[in-house]
């Protein structure tokens, strides 16, 4: 009875994920090795193309910068939220959750209005006399990074608020009682205890920005393609399915490598689990 229930209950989800996700993705990856020119020919082609490797490096660069900025902003903000009294804290959390629940398209679109040629930023700078010509801020790495940071900061804030609230109050108080000034407590107690959470947050943001599609589509355009937009373009515009599959395979490998390595490190650094 138990044996039947145990396996039977997990069976539908297991079958669904296996047949509809694992197998299709594996097939996609497998097709990249079936080219007549050689098993790895599509990969050689990818890495010999300056255009495509540029996009890969740009994607990695944007993802890393986004992650770093979101980490700093998210951690400092979460630290402030964690100290807030109850009511203020709920308001702050609502303010962070609201953008998070608002879609990617809407949030990226906001930056089109802000950064566009006739956007708010340009018109404010013009009317303040700081610039005489509108700047072209859209379709740059900068515009993509700003929008991505905007996208991921709320996620980071919520993740890290949870992490910081999980640090027991008496451990922080023990530090003070032993004579540690607030700044020493921050660097010697709070920060080290938050590291595993910081890694989890960083992985979320890195993979999210590395694989993003809508934001680079809107704010990067043709000029600033990322892996996600490149994949879409190869698949749906030029119908180069093998090329698209190659990009897909590279994205899968990088994502899974980053997740598994970083989560292993996070587990190693977690002092609670020995």
């Amino acid at each position: 009875m138990n044996k039947f229930a145990k396996w039977g209950l997990t069976l539908p989800a297991t079958i669904a994920v296996t047949l509809l996700l694992v197998v299709p993705v594996l097939i996609t990856i497998a097709t990249t090795f079936g080219e007549p020119k050689g098993v790895f020919s599509t990969y050689t082609a990818f890495f010999n193309s300056g255009f495509r490797t540029n996009i890969l490096y740009r994607t990695l660069r944007i993802a890393l910068i986004t992650t770093a900025i979101s980490l700093v902003i998210g951690f400092l903000t979460a630290y402030v939220i964690a100290q807030m009294p109850g009511r203020l804290k709920s308001i702050a959390i609502i303010a962070a959750v609201f953008p998070l629940l608002t879609g990617v398209v809407v949030r990226s679109f906001a930056w089109l209005i802000i950064l566009g040629k006739n956007g708010i930023l340009n018109s404010s700078l013009l009317s303040l006399g700081i610039i005489s010509e509108p700047l072209s801020m859209l379709y740059t790495e900068g515009s993509v990074i700003v929008a991505m940071v905007y996208l991921f900061v709320p996620l980071m804030i919520l993740t890290l608020t949870g992490v910081l609230e999980g640090i027991p109050r008496d451990v922080v108080e023990a530090s003070a009682s032993l004579g540690a000034r607030p700044i020493a407590t921050f660097f010697q107690v709070i920060l080290p205890l938050a590291v595993p959470g910081l890694i989890v947050g960083a992985v979320l943001v890195f993979t999210g920005s590395f694989t993003s599609y809508a934001t680079p589509q809107l704010l990067g355009g043709e000029q600033m393609m990322m892996m996600g937009t490149l994949l879409y373009q190869r698949a749906m515009v030029t119908f180069d399915w093998v090329g698209a599959s190659t990009i897909a395979a590279i994205m899968v490998v990088i994502t899974i490598a980053v997740v598994s390595i970083m989560s292993r490190i996070a587990r190693r650094l977690n002092p609670m689990a020995v």
């Binding site: 996700l21 996609t28 694989t211």
Partner: peptide
């Protein structure tokens, strides 16, 4: 691995999943 299997949809890049679904299914 069963637990990991069920979070694969988050682990595998969405755009790769969408493309693979279109292609195979």
């Amino acid at each position: 691995w069963l637990g990991t299997l069920f979070i694969l949809p988050i682990l595998v890049p969405e755009i790769v999943f969408g493309f693979s679904l279109l292609k195979t299914i």
